[in-house]
Design a protein around this nucleic acid. Structure first.
Length: 433
RNA sequence: GUGGGUGUAGCUCAGCUGGUGGUAGCACCUGGUUGUGGCCCAGGAGGUCGUGGGUUCAAGUCCCAUCACUCACCCCA
């Protein structure tokens, strides 16, 4: 019986992993432009952490977490809770009034997999802790938009405010009254939702529910003065930064801790999984987890979804590797000579490969070609005797003789000089992706 | 947890109303070139037809079960 990866768990193989590297590299670049620092947390946490932050009655906590029940530990289903735990544990608020942190890594949820949704999935998570100013909300969204733009994926930004503990309960009541009048017209899921999480009724996909809900009261019109002012400045900030967005009064968040600003980067190209990234403000959460009374805001980008979008773009051919030099030794004597030479060249910084299987020159040339070698050094019995080898430029097919009787150090030095000027490796690689 | 679709070579897939698994494409290996890549040509290797039962003289094909994958619902990045 063949052993395969678990359902919902995926290998990222060569040819695909380059896209992931591209996404990560772009993200690290942008995050550092915005003065964020990386933080890495463990994947396992005490179950209680997630129950307290995400919400005891959310689907995630109730049925989607990978938990070792006997040990009361859980594989993180999202990053924010762990990151805040680390922030509190290390007293990072004392070091700086405002912490700008990001983390990249795997998350785990036991859901049924589908396009863009796996059981182990990867997020890039960004959090600003200690900043109250609504301009920071706008700045964060602008950063997300900038990253997505640089990656070349087209998304739209949708924005809403969920209010705060002062005004949300009032709206909730208003909404419940509205739903009450139409209860019988709603689908079974929405009937259930109206008890558990009435806001969820607003973004039901069922067309008849949508029709019912069109006239629903908008939370944006029921915000308290502070929340309303905050929301206005967020929008003003987005306009200042030239970030286009649209208001969506139906947008709701799945996690309990969100307050005020919430937003999603949406695409139409991923089937049912429209959100490429999403986040919002969580002003009470840090205190609730036993930390200082500071506000926070953040968002997460789904890496699988980003990679899928990149793959969908035209000309998304698999990335071809490159190397500086392939050394072809013909026969046992030549291979014996070449073996330490390859090592010496690698030590000097060249990307070098050789064949160890005693294959024909033709076969080795094929290997070199496939590997994207720019040069091939051919060392045969005849060359060895004459103290010479042939250096072939694979790009223009020109061959030159090169002295090899002078010792490996000198030989590798001259090869280094020939091969290195061509080393625009990283630029070329970046462009090809 | 609920529903639909699909399982044939490493990958993409043919295989009609049951009658010996495809000269299919890509990829791989070897040769055409006594020591020279890409293109072309020739050859080669690669399969318990997802698995287990059943019907039948005969099952990749029909039936049942099971597993896996996949899309959607729920939920969510």
């Amino acid at each position: 019986m063949k052993i395969t990866a678990l359902n919902g768990f995926k290998d990222i193989v060569p040819g695909e992993v380059e896209l992931w590297q591209k996404v990560e590299t772009a993200a690290r670049d942008i995050f550092s432009r915005f003065n964020f620092s990386e933080i890495r947390m463990p994947i396992l946490e005490k179950t209680e952490l997630f129950a307290r932050s995400i919400g005891e009655t959310t689907d995630i906590v109730e049925k989607e977490m990978y938990t070792f029940i006997d040990k009361q530990i859980t594989m993180r289903p999202e990053a924010t809770a762990s990151l805040l735990r680390a922030y509190i544990q290390h007293g990072l608020h004392v070091q700086k009034p405002v912490q700008r942190l990001f983390t990249i890594g795997p998350m785990f949820r036991h859901e049924r997999p589908q396009m863009g949704r796996l059981r182990q999935f990867h997020q890039m998570d960004v959090e600003v802790i200690g900043a109250q100013n609504p301009r920071v909300d706008a700045e964060l969204m602008a950063m997300g938009a900038m990253l997505l733009e640089e990656l070349g994926v087209t998304v739209s930004l949708e924005l809403n405010s969920l209010g705060c503990p002062a005004c949300r309960p009032g709206f909730r009541k208003t909404l419940l009254d509205f739903i009450e009048d139409r209860y019988e017209a709603l689908c079974d899921d929405c009937k259930r939702r109206s008890n558990t999480n009435p806001l969820r009724v607003l973004d039901c996909k069922n067309p008849s529910c949508r029709a019912q809900v069109v006239e629903a009261p908008s939370i944006q019109e029921h915000l308290c003065q502070e929340c309303s002012d905050h929301f206005a400045v967020v929008q003003k900030g987005l306009q200042q930064l030239g970030v286009s967005y649209s208001l969506n009064k139906f947008m709701v968040r799945g996690l309990d801790y969100y307050t005020r600003t919430t937003f999603e980067f949406i695409t139409g190209d991923l089937g049912a999984q429209a959100a490429v990234g999403a986040g919002g403000r969580y002003d009470g959460l840090i205190e609730q987890l036993g930390g200082p009374k500071v506000p926070g805001i953040g968002f997460a980008l789904g890496m699988e979804r980003l990679v899928l979008l990149l793959q969908q773009k035209k000309g998304a051919e698999t990335v071809q590797g490159e190397m500086d030099l392939f050394v072809a030794g013909l026969g046992e004597t030549a291979s014996h000579f070449v073996f330490p030479l390859v090592h010496a060249l690698r030590r000097k910084g060249l990307q070098v490969a050789m064949d160890h299987e005693g294959r024909s020159l033709k076969s080795q040339m094929k290997q070199a070609n496939k590997a994207g070698a720019h040069y091939v050094l051919i060392v045969g019995e005849a060359e060895l005797e004459q103290g010479q080898a042939v250096l072939r430029n694979m790009d223009d097919q020109k061959q030159t003789d090169i002295e090899i009787g002078t010792g490996i150090d000198k030989l590798s030095q001259s090869l280094l000089e020939i091969c290195k000027p061509l080393d625009k490796f990283s630029d070329i690689l970046t462009k090809r992706i």
